[in-house]
């Protein structure tokens, strides 16, 4: 990771990588969602409502992976004072929050025709809503700290502590009785039939690439702004 410690070297890789991730992800998502909407079979019980899964599961994955990324970057920021880690952590926060919101919204729209309710306070749904609130708090804290010219240490600690919610979300369906069903995809296999599973995996990959492109774009914007601010400060001195 220390290869990327230098922003100039990072930008040399990030600039050409951004369009590749963006277009690659866009094409994969378009293909996967077309398959999911029109080609994949309906479910034997849920019927066509099952098609929401092609959005819900990738969004849930990215909402959680996003905070895992924030936690790792925060650790690198605190322990090794890695100059790019703070930028990366802050760049992940907004897309992470948006995908967590998409996960909750699509889940709600799936729950109504399937369970018969938009929302219930069970362990899985509540812990996912907590993740959204953590993102909002993290973004607000980061902005406040930056305005005061802080180093983002408090924000990084918040990013690390918040990671405790990730195993809670993951295991909520095992620890507590929940309305939400158990895990369908594990390391050893899946309980989703193949014609539904592969569009789901392509969709998750596509959204992940898009997520990467968004994070890179936000990091580049922050680095450029930092450069401008540094120049102006130097010019004023």
């Amino acid at each position: 990771m220390h290869v990327f410690a230098n922003p100039a070297r990072f930008l040399k890789i990030a600039r050409p990588l951004t369009p590749w991730l963006g277009w690659g992800g866009g094409v994969l998502v378009a293909f996967a969602l077309f398959m999911g909407l029109f080609v994949a079979p309906p479910d034997y019980l849920q019927g066509d409502s099952v098609r929401i899964i092609y959005l819900h599961v990738p969004a849930a994955w990215l909402g959680m992976a996003g905070w895992a990324g924030i936690a790792v970057a925060s650790l690198m920021q605190i322990v090794w004072r890695h100059p790019l880690a703070a930028v990366a952590a802050r760049a992940i926060a907004v897309p992470g929050a948006v995908f967590t919101f998409i996960c909750l919204a699509t889940g709600s729209l799936w729950g109504r025709p399937t369970w018969g309710t938009y929302w219930q306070w069970d362990g899985r749904m509540t812990s996912m809503l907590v993740l959204l609130f953590l993102y909002v708090g993290y973004i607000a804290l980061g902005e406040a700290d930056r305005e005061r010219g802080g180093e983002g240490r408090i924000t990084a600690i918040f990013g690390l502590v918040g990671a405790i919610n990730l195993p809670v979300i993951h295991y909520s369906v095992l620890w507590w009785r929940t309305l939400h069903q158990g895990q369908s995809i594990g390391l050893t296999g899946s309980t989703i039939a193949a014609p539904m599973l592969w569009p789901l995996l392509v969709s998750a990959l596509g959204f992940s690439l898009l997520f990467g492109a968004i994070v890179l774009m936000r990091m580049r914007a922050m680095l450029a702004r930092q450069k401008v601010e540094a120049r102006l400060r130097r010019a004023a001195a």
Binding site: P42, Y44, T114, W115, R177, G182, I192, A193, M196
Partner: peptide
Amino acid sequence: EILAKHDENYMPPQLDAGKHEHKTGPVR
């Protein structure tokens, strides 16, 4: 109020024909 609880199995209707007896696992 009654809510239907879905399980973790997703499959197309034709695969369901012989498998309708599968949902006897522990209640979660």
